[in-house]
Design a protein around this nucleic acid. Structure first.
Lengths: 184, 184
DNA sequence: GGTCCCATGTAACAAGTTACATGATTCC
DNA sequence: GGAATCATGTAACTTGTTACATGGGACC
C-alpha cells in the first residue's frame, strides 16, 4: 500500500491536487517509488471511497478547473496506523529484474552482458546526478510542503539513494572486471 | 516479465515440475525475486497457452503424480529475445516501501523509527547469513541444474546480494546515529 | 500424534501498466 | 510554430497477493 499511504502522507502536509501529488511522485519520491499518473488518479478515487480524503472543486479562469484534495481525520488515522506498523514483510520482498537477467546470462554472449552492465552504470550515474541537483532544491521543497522538520527524513532517503546507486555502480564494475578476466 | 522468463530460464537448464521451480524461487532466486507458489502455477499455465513450454504427466506410486515441464523451441526463442534486450526501463523502476515510510517518518516518534530500522538491520543480517550458507551449496546447486558454467553468473547475483544487504545495514546504522544525535 | 515433504492448483481481489483522450495557456 | 505546464481521467490488460483446498507418505 505504499502508494496509497504516500498520497495520504503528502496530503497530510498540505492540500493538493492530483497533479501536484503526481509531480511530487515524479521528483523527490521518484527514485524509490515511481507511480504512473493514471494510477495516482485511480488511487485518489479509492481514497475518496474509503473517506480517507475529501475534495473541493476550484474553478479557475486562466487554467483548467481543479480538484483540491485534503486528508480527513479517518485518513490521518489510517496514515498513522500504517506508519506505526513495524512489520517488514513488504520490505523484504525485494525484486530486481536485472539480477534475473544476470542469473541466466550464461545463455547469451559475454559482450552483450557487458554492454548491459555498462548501460546500467550510465543510468545509475544519471540518477545520482539528478539527485545531486535535488539536494540543492531542498529549501524549495520545504517551501512547497510548508514544513521544515520533514527535510530531515527527506535527507535520509536522499542519502539512501546516493548510497544505493553508488553501490550498484560498484557491483556492476566488479562484474565487468570479472567478465573481462574471463574472456582474456 | 521476469517471473515468466525466470521460469523459462530454469526450464532451459533442465525439465522440472512446478514444485521444483517453486523451490528454486524460494532458494537461490528468493532474495531478488520472490514469487508466490500460486503465481508460479498460474504462470506455467500461461506459458503452456503460448506454447513456450510443454509437459508430460508422470504417474508415481509412492508420491503424488506430477507434471514435468520442458521448454519448447518457441520458448527458447522467447527466452533469448528477452535476455538479449538491453532496455533498462524495468530496472530503473526501483520500489522501496521502507523509504516511503522513512520519508514520512516525521509523523511518528523517533523511537519507533529507530526500532523499525533496528528490526530492518536484523532482517538484512539474516538474509546475509542465509546467503552465506547458500554459497557453500554452490556445488549442490550445480548438480541440481546439471551445469557448471552457470554458477559463474549465479556468483555474480550472490555478490550483488551481499553488497546490497551490507549497504542497507550501513545506511540504517547511519540513520540511527543521526536520530540519536537528534534526540540528545 | 505432529510436522515436513511432495504435489497441484482455484477464486477473489489488489496493484500496477499501457494506451488513449482532451484542451487551453504560456514561454521560447 | 512547438514544447512545456496545467489538469483530469477511462478502459483494457497484466501482474501479484491472499486465502483456500486436498491428501498421502515419511520421519520423529
Amino acid at each position: 500500500m505504499p502508494l496509497r499511504h504516500g498520497i495520504l502522507g503528502l496530503l497530510n502536509y498540505k492540500d493538493m491536487t492530483g497533479y501536484e501529488i503526481d509531480r511530487h511522485f515524479k521528483s523527490a519520491i521518484a527514485f524509490f517509488w515511481y507511480a504512473q499518473t493514471s494510477q495516482i488518479y485511480k488511487e485518489l478515487a479509492t481514497l475518496m471511497k474509503y473517506e480517507f480524503v475529501g475534495c473541493e472543486i476550484v474553478y479557475q479562469e486562466d487554467k483548467p478547473n481543479k480538484k483540491v484534495f485534503h486528508i480527513t481525520d479517518k485518513g490521518r488515522l489510517e496514515l498513522d496506523r500504517w506508519l506505526s506498523k513495524t512489520d517488514l514483510t513488504d520490505m523484504m520482498k525485494y525484486k530486481n529484474p536485472l539480477l534475473v537477467k544476470i542469473f541466466f546470462a550464461s545463455e547469451i554472449d559475454v559482450d552483450q552482458t557487458m554492454r548491459l552492465l555498462e548501460k546500467y552504470i550510465k543510468e545509475c550515474s544519471e540518477v545520482i546526478e539528478r539527485m545531486n541537483e535535488d539536494v540543492n532544491k531542498i529549501g524549495e521543497y520545504e517551501k512547497s510542503i510548508g514544513r521544515e522538520n520533514e527535510s530531515f527524513y527527506w535527507g535520509m532517503t536522499m542519502t539512501y539513494g546516493l548510497m544505493y546507486y553508488q553501490n550498484e555502480i560498484k557491483w556492476a564494475n566488479w562484474c565487468i572486471d570479472k567478465l573481462k578476466e574471463r574472456i582474456k
